[in-house]
Design a protein around this nucleic acid. Structure first.
Lengths: 241, 241, 241, 241
DNA sequence: CATGAATGAGCCTTCATTCAT
DNA sequence: TATGAATGAAGGCTCATTCAT
């Protein structure tokens, strides 16, 4: 590939990122239905036609935003899965990654909710749909592998279905994040730091599954320090680790 | 109030329910942005103008759907809260109510998600917003009271923040329902009956909080039978109780 | 039907005609691709939305214009077909009707040409397509019946295929009209009155088929006078008859 | 002019033909309004910019297609006009040429119809418009000369206006071709071979003008054989000649 | 000369909302 | 009170044309 071609390639990628950045911002501010391509074009200072050089439809663009975030999440999960330690410590690393992700993509789950409508997927490009599945699969496998290790190593009771553990962890995490950003619930439950609660909830569930070592059997604050140091050394977003 | 006025009042209410019934159906079928007032008018066999005699805007209508469902949920919660037994049994009754509700309003959480957008609330009527808060408060207090009782009675450890317990239960429940209906996750996690998993997840969290009696300390299947018999005798939707 | 309903019905029809009138004018001025619904709305002094209360798509509207003209043509043909006289005189009455029609709808054939594109018909409503076929059939049968009579009565040679005669008459008529309005051809052929030539061309073809009585065997100017008087008494458009 | 320049000139011409070939194909497949320059560029494997090095606008390109076809028609007409024989035989040769042309350019007349819109010509280049007139003139004169010869030689009645004869022949030919490809009319009139009918229609008109020798006074099938052999020896498209 | 990325005006269509009857 | 015809702003998408490289 010629030098010029590479540069163009880079420029194209950069612009695609630029579009996604602004689109994501508008999407989260206004919701999908109020996302307006005229405004987006104005924001990125490119024409509307240019947007369509990158994305087939508005739905395709929206899905691309989700895919990008999901890819980042999958990357973090795979990094976290390599953490050296007991299986529950490794799971904790993924929990850490998940919160880290939630901080950077505060409203990612809202985007994910937008994708619910069936008519949505029909209008997105085939490639984009495939990309979404790929990243979703990576996320799931990162966690599922650890749970299976835990069962094999005896950290989780024999006979536990790994998929059910994964499901409960996804549920408590997603639920915590979604509910945690709800102003009404924040008010009623007196929540200040939703992320902290999300991680505690994950602990509750792990303890519920009897995932050894239990919360009171291990110094997880030390684990957290190691996670932060070894896996996410550059992170400054989470004050406590 | 004259006899005629009362009859008219009743007719008005009946029509409002009719509108909400069909609107909810269409809303869940097509999503908010595809909810079309022309189609709704055709379905209810009244004119579009008539819809506007009941609801100020499309957003107001949508919120009314949510309020109606929420009210039903609050009613069920309050009924469940009166269940006679240990605090965790009463919480279990509410969990039961929540699943029961989820069965009747399979996609209520999707509607709740639609309400996220800020611009949405601006267009709903003040009265409707207030009504929503009232019902949300009822739901919260039903649960929170039980948790506080549990702390007072020593079923939950001293020093436990009741709001955090409530938060975790809401999170695991909402998370389980939202994640449980996701086809991708159903596929990855091999889920057949999301509701069953939702209830198990609630147990995990209660055990995590050390809410006595723990799962293995009590015959909760007997409790479930009583709940079904005493609180929801007419329910046939949940096969196992 | 109530009085009000009838009036509304009438108003609706009147507006539909209004839309068609202006749409036809713009269509012939600018061609189909340049027909602009914004401009049309401005011209009719109704909103764009109103246009869509009458016509499903732009294609549907265009086809409606063609159907309306075609219906008028079919009406004239059927009226002309009733002319009392020899078969060739009756055919002549239809030829007269055709020219009369061409005067009132100077560019009808151009509209008909627009309908060629296959993608066009897909976007028009089923009802409209059917209506078009109905009117086209009426036109054809009016003429074909006369030709069959001519064969039966011996005015046309035995063994003549009526459809081929009709085809040749349609061809010479359509060809004359289309070519006759072409400025280049008008210039080259020194044409002043295309209609007169169209009628003469029809005579050439009839003589070619040996349709009795031939041009030089009968006083067709007398026939023309009768046609004008009996069939189209109100017509002032054609100077010579 | 240098050798290089000549080669470039040739290359330029070749590419122009390539563009016209594909453009004509797309034009006839999709109609003018659906002719898409992006697709055309892809088809010719040159860039869109290159198309604009050859043609000023999309209209200019379309007109160029018409001009090219018209030139071919004029060439065929002039060749046919040289046929040795009676004037009506020579006219027949042109009729033959016309059908031959219609076979190779099945939808040429549709293209010709597209040129009707006034706004079209405004956007085509002056040069192209002039070229179109030149070729149209050649076609007309080929035929007109033969008719004038016929009048002079007494094959057509004295006093006949040659332009009117030409007009009627153009009309019957154009009409036959346009009407003949109309599926509705094919259905109604039971047409299988439109070209055959077109030629018969030409005969009807000639007989109508009393152009000697009449159809029943001469063995025109022999003429047709000669035409085919002497003028269009390479043609295999027309089965009967 | 050749490219093809970028443009942006333009257009069809939808649909929540209004209001005269 | 109930209607539904009328509105018109809004928005997604296209594509002929340009121009820097």
């Amino acid at each position: 590939m010629s030098v010029t071609a590479t540069r163009k390639e880079r420029e194209r990628s950069a612009r695609e990122e630029l579009i996604l950045d602004h689109a994501q911002r508008l999407l989260l501010r206004d919701g999908y239905q109020n996302l307006n391509l005229d405004e987006l074009a104005r924001a990125i200072e490119y024409s509307k036609g240019t947007i369509y050089l990158h994305f087939q439809t508005k739905e395709d663009l929206t899905l691309a935003i989700a895919v990008r975030a999901l890819k980042e999440r999958a990357d973090m999960f795979e990094r976290a899965a390599k953490f050296a330690g007991r299986t529950r410590e490794r799971a904790r690393a993924i929990g850490f990654a998940c919160c880290e992700f939630a901080v950077c993509h505060r409203d990612y789950f809202n985007i994910e909710m937008m994708l619910k409508s069936a008519s949505f997927w029909e209008k997105a490009s085939e490639d984009r749909r495939r990309a979404h599945n790929v990243q979703a699969g990576r996320c799931f496998r990162s966690m599922n592998t650890i749970v299976q290790d835990a069962i094999r190593e005896g950290d989780l009771p024999t006979g536990t279905h790994s998929e059910h553990v994964v499901f409960s962890l996804i549920a408590i995490t997603m639920g915590s994040h979604i509910v945690g950003v709800n102003p009404d619930i924040q008010f009623y439950c007196g929540i200040e730091n939703p992320l902290e609660l999300a991680r505690r909830n994950q602990d509750l569930v792990c303890d519920g599954w009897n995932w050894r070592p239990l919360l009171n059997e291990w110094d997880y604050s030390a684990t957290d320090k190691r996670i932060k140091a070894e896996i996410f050394p550059d992170t400054t977003l989470l004050k406590s680790a």
